[in-house]
């Protein structure tokens, strides 16, 4: 926090970055701790959005639009991933009626 503040001197940016960082960590921890496939996917979305927030904030900070452009692409990719994820989950659910990720462990040593 102090590091960021001293690095940029602008409390506002640091706040945003902090927010995004917290979001990212929440997403990550959620991903690691939850067992439900859909929730896990949502957690990755959370991490994506954390990055998006950072991009927007930094873009605003530098008056640079490319950050915002990036966010659009992130959203697009996230949407594609969402489609893929849901399709996959449906496919899996057809095979085995469970959403618990731990039930899928046929491939292991």
């Amino acid at each position: 926090m102090i590091l960021l503040a001293s690095a940029f001197g602008q409390l506002a940016l640091a706040h945003y970055l902090l927010l995004s960082g917290v979001l990212f960590v929440i997403g990550l921890v959620g991903f690691l701790s939850r067992r439900n496939l859909i929730v896990m996917f949502l957690c990755t979305e959370l991490m994506f959005q954390a990055a998006a927030i950072a991009f927007v904030a930094v873009g605003r900070y530098y008056y640079d639009f490319s950050g915002q452009v990036f966010v659009i692409f992130i959203l697009t990719v996230a949407a594609a991933e969402a489609a893929l994820a849901l399709a996959l989950v449906v496919l899996l659910f057809r095979r085995k009626p469970t959403l618990n990720a731990e039930d899928w462990r046929d491939l292991s040593e």
Binding site: L13, L17, S20, F24, G27, L28, F31, L37, M40, F41, T44, M47, F48, A50, A51, A54, F55, V58, G59, Y61, S66, G67, F70, I74, V77, E81, L84, A85, L88, L91, L92, A101, W104, R105, D106, L107
Partner: peptide, 26 residues
């Protein structure tokens, strides 16, 4: 099952490097 593992972990890693990109941008 393989696809599930690949995808979910892949998504996580994508998020990680994306966040790295964000920091680089910052």
């Amino acid at each position: 099952e393989a696809a599930m593992k690949y995808f979910f972990l892949g998504a996580m890693s994508a998020a990680i490097f994306l966040y790295g990109f964000a920091l680089l941008y910052a």
